[in-house]
């Protein structure tokens, strides 16, 4: 039982980190696409659909990293009440992760549905890339599901162990400001 639990823990943490790394790769590819587009313009060439590709990479960089960022306490929340509650914090955390799980599963459901409909409706990018949209939208769906799994994972941890294991990283949160 314990070994199974540990294995599951390792698997889930590995998943979040892997998501983060895929997101990081997407960030690097944004850089590569923008640079390639600039060079193309300077040399009188065309990089068809560069703006669209950069946009898809942007979506992947965000969605794949959501769970990893949650795990590292990077998502912003107003924690005044949470810290004021002291040892009763657990109850409010259950509420937060409960709401969070519900909302992220809702998001996941419609993200998957969007992929399905984009495919069915043959929705194609309006840019020069003419990419079938369900392909880049898969990143959105996968990232949303990963976040929902992470939320549920932490909800279970709060319920069973009493704490989520996330330590809010205010330094990291501050970097967006």
């Amino acid at each position: 039982m314990i070994a199974l639990g540990r294995g599951l823990r390792r698997l889930l943490d590995g998943l979040y980190l892997a998501g983060g790394m895929i997101a990081a790769l997407a960030l690097v590819s944004i850089l590569a696409i923008i640079v390639a587009q600039m060079i193309a313009r300077w040399t009188g060439l065309i990089f068809p659909g560069a703006a669209s590709y950069a946009g898809y990479a942007m979506a992947s960089a965000s969605f794949f990293a959501f769970a990893h960022a949650l795990n590292r306490g990077a998502h912003i929340r107003v924690s005044l009440l949470l810290s004021a509650l002291g040892r009763h914090r657990r109850w409010l955390e259950i509420w937060c992760f409960g709401i969070g799980s519900a909302l992220t599963w809702y998001l996941s459901y419609y993200a998957i549905k969007a992929v399905y409909w984009s495919r069915k409706l043959n929705d194609i990018s309006q840019g020069q890339d003419a990419t079938p949209l369900w392909i880049p939208q898969m990143a959105m769906a996968a990232g949303a599901v990963l976040l929902a799994i992470a939320m549920t994972d932490h909800l279970v941890r709060v319920l069973v162990l009493g704490s989520s294991g996330i330590v809010a990283d205010t330094v990291e949160q501050s970097h967006g400001e």
């Binding site: 587009q37 193309a40 313009r41 009188g44 065309i46 990089f47 068809p48 560069a50 703006a51 020069q128």
Partner: peptide, 25 residues
């Protein structure tokens, strides 16, 4: 001449007229 091409058709237009396509949003 440096010509703003923003989609496939305008890029083709540049090619057919011998203008240099540049991509600008």
């Amino acid at each position: 001449i440096k010509f703003r091409a923003y989609n496939a058709a305008t890029a083709k237009l540049a090619e057919l007229t011998g203008m240099l396509p540049v991509q600008i949003e």
